[in-house]
Amino acid sequence: MKHYRAYCFDLDGTVYRGKEVIPTAIQFIHQLEDKQLDYFFVTNNSSKTPSQIKQTLQQFGLNVSEKQIYSSSLVTAKYVKKHFGQAKVFVIGQDGIRYALQQEGIDIVEENPDVVVMGIDRKIDYEKLTKACIAVQNGATLIGTNEDIKFPTEKGFHPGNGSFVKLVSQVSNVEPMFMGKPSPVMLEMIQQEYGYNKNEMLMIGDNYDTDILCGIRFGCDTVHVNTGVVNTEKVKEKGVQPTYCINDLSEFEL
């Protein structure tokens, strides 16, 4: 297998499933550390701040810097700031997306927003969804941090942010914008900040429709692992194949 300078990992379904670690992934990352190779985490999970994601990884035996963590919240907040300036934003979401928007100085409101931003919210309710639908029908732009319909946990699949954004979209008859994978923006940020060539980067993930397509659209090599959302059999039916298809990261030779 080819050698790379930057290994980019999805989290849910690749490094862990809910509160359950995937041991082969942790072992692989420790091998990268031993060989002094760079690695990053590229996640669509908008619920946690970089500090909270760092703490989660520490519980699994990984001591990482917040600079190694790139999330859909970060990308979404930067996009809103760049394209909507002083717009008022109604947010459905948890700490991660709220923290990212506040860091960009964005005005978060409950009424009459110019933009509706939706990230995963484990306390979502009918009232929040209704407010989002009404705001979008009144002209607010609908932005989702990511379009994942589901994500794996130790108990099974849970609804992802995309399922709720789709609901608001269908009620309001408006197409949403999505910021996270399969958009290549997070990989582009890593490349720009560290100066890698695309052929020196590798995207590793369990979900073909987000992780693998992100790498393909960016133009780097990809690894699909059979530990999460999409199994290998389904991946082999796709028109464009990952560079590597493996059961888990114990099969990837450094």
Rank of each mutant, 00 (worst) to 15 (best):
M118K: 09
H30S: 04
I53Q: 12
H158P: 00
D221G: 04
V240Y: 02
S169R: 06
K88P: 03
M118L: 14
G105C: 06
G119H: 09
M177A: 01
F90L: 15
I29Q: 00
C220N: 11
Q241W: 02
T43E: 01
N45D: 14
C214P: 10
K166A: 14
M1D: 09
P23F: 05
K67T: 13
N197I: 00
V91Y: 07
M179A: 03
T49A: 02
L187M: 12
K128P: 02
N161G: 04
Y7A: 05
E251T: 10
S51A: 15
T232I: 15
Q137I: 04
G219F: 07
G93T: 08
Y4F: 12
E111C: 01
G215Q: 09
D34N: 15
Y194G: 00
E233D: 14
V185E: 14
V225Q: 11
P182H: 05
G85I: 06
I97K: 07
V89G: 03
A132V: 04
G85A: 13
V80Y: 08
V225A: 10
S183V: 03
D121I: 04
Q103V: 04
S163Q: 07
L74C: 03
K82E: 15
S172Q: 10
N161R: 05
L74E: 14
M177F: 13
K166L: 08
E154L: 06
Q58A: 14
G93D: 08
V89F: 00
M201R: 11
S172D: 07
L254D: 01
